Amino acid sequence: MASIQLKNVVKSFGSFIGVQDMTLNIADEEFLVLLGPSGCGKTTTMRMIAGLEHPTGGEIRIGGDLMNEVDARDRDVAMVFQGYALYPNMSIYENIRFPLRMRKIPKVRHDELIQRAAEMVELGLFLDRKPGALSGGQRQRAALARAIVRQPQVFLMDEPLSNLDAKLRASMRVQIKHLQRELRVTTVYVTHDQIEAMTLADRIVIMNKGVIQQIGTPDEIYSNPANTFVAGFIGSPPMNLIPGSASNGIFIAEGMTAPCPSGLSGKVTLGIRPEDCRVGGDNLHGVVYGVEPTGDVTYLTVRTASRKIEIKAARDFRAGIDSAVTVGYDPDRLYFFGEDGNRVGAD
């Protein structure tokens, strides 16, 4: 298998910079997720690793070897796409077999390799069917089997679960994670879905406008967001971000005050996650704007004089719209961000 190194990689499209000065080291056998909104540069980064796009500047190495001028077919990587990319006129067996034929693997080995890959994704009983006769989840598993059969040194997965319903996405996440651990293949996975990122990744790279915002484990990203973009992107619902000002160890915003680091002054944004808020207390006063029971938790939106606050309330909490409510929070779970958006007072 192989490590991947990107050093000062730039990709521009005319005057538009898609990826800006990216330096990133991906360890051998690591499962790394590129996460961010549409247009942030994550798919462009993957395409450069694959050789489908060439960097405008910088270096890309796989297994220590410089890849900048190496054709995609010679990089020993396998890609899994959002759209499955199966040949509709071929059986699943022939779809999985296709990479073996292209790489001129001896025919005597084909059946063994195909059967092994199919069993790993639980498709052994469907090899004679064509893609149109399979469900979305089965077609995605066929695409995975086609990547597995190549035995590449790198897997590249570009939003492979986006076309599936919620239940299938959950089961496929488990299967992809298990397969990656079993195969021990370095994997780069692109998604805009934070749940996929948090559940799959060894490390997450959060991108915005072509620039890396933060790199860390899921726990590090969630517990110690580097800036307001990361804080507002990770979490469901995302962190409440409340603009205000700080002076003499006190944060002040309309309708609330809170203790803050003594050295903090000027314009400041306070962050507090919905699960660290509670109904009751005297930190904030407002009215109920929305109540969303989900079974295990109730999502409550409280409207104050100038903003809306999201809270994870008890599963049995109910209240009428526009009824008065007070909100408390855990003072040890407050985050503060400076005028530039970067976190202050971080561990």
Rank of each mutant, 00 (worst) to 15 (best):
S3D: 15
L6W: 07
N8W: 09
N8S: 13
V9E: 09
K11F: 05
S12Q: 13
S15Y: 04
F16V: 15
M22I: 14
M22L: 15
T23Y: 09
I26W: 08
E29K: 15
E29D: 13
E30T: 11
C40E: 03
K42N: 09
T45M: 12
M48S: 12
A50L: 12
A50V: 03
E53H: 11
H54Y: 05
P55F: 12
E59S: 14
I60D: 04
N68G: 10
V70F: 10
D74W: 06
D74C: 02
D74K: 12
D76G: 10
A78G: 03
Q82K: 08
A85C: 09
L86P: 10
Y87E: 06
P88G: 07
P88C: 10
Y93V: 00
I96F: 12
K104G: 12
P106H: 08
V108M: 03
D111W: 06
E112V: 10
L113F: 04
I114D: 07
R116K: 15
A118C: 09
E122T: 12
L123H: 01
L123N: 03
D128L: 02
A133W: 00
R141G: 02
L144F: 11
A145Y: 01
I148N: 06
Q151P: 00
Q153G: 02
M157H: 01
D158A: 07
L164C: 10
L164G: 07
D165I: 00
D165H: 05
K167E: 04
A170F: 07
R173A: 00
V174S: 09
I176P: 01
K177N: 12
K177G: 03
R181T: 03
R181H: 04
E182T: 15
E182D: 04
E182K: 14
T186A: 11
T186M: 03
H192L: 08
Q194W: 00
A197R: 05
A201H: 04
R203L: 07
K209H: 15
K209T: 12
K209R: 15
V211E: 15
G216A: 13
T217R: 03
T217S: 14
D219A: 14
E220L: 04
E220I: 01
N224K: 13
G232T: 00
G235Q: 05
P237N: 06
I242L: 12
I242H: 02
S245F: 08
S247T: 11
S247H: 14
F251P: 03
A253F: 06
G255R: 00
T257A: 02
P259H: 06
P259Y: 10
C260W: 01
P261D: 11
L264W: 10
T269H: 09
R273I: 09
P274L: 07
P274T: 06
E275W: 13
C277D: 02
C277F: 11
V279T: 08
L284N: 05
L284V: 11
G286L: 06
G286Y: 08
V287T: 15
V287N: 13
G290I: 08
T294S: 13
V297N: 10
T298V: 14
T301W: 08
T304M: 02
E310I: 01
A313S: 13
F317H: 02
R318W: 00
D322Y: 01
V325S: 00
G328K: 12
D330F: 02
P331F: 06
R333Y: 04
L334M: 10
Y335H: 14
F336G: 07
F337K: 05
E339D: 15
D340A: 05
G341R: 03
V344P: 05
G345Q: 07
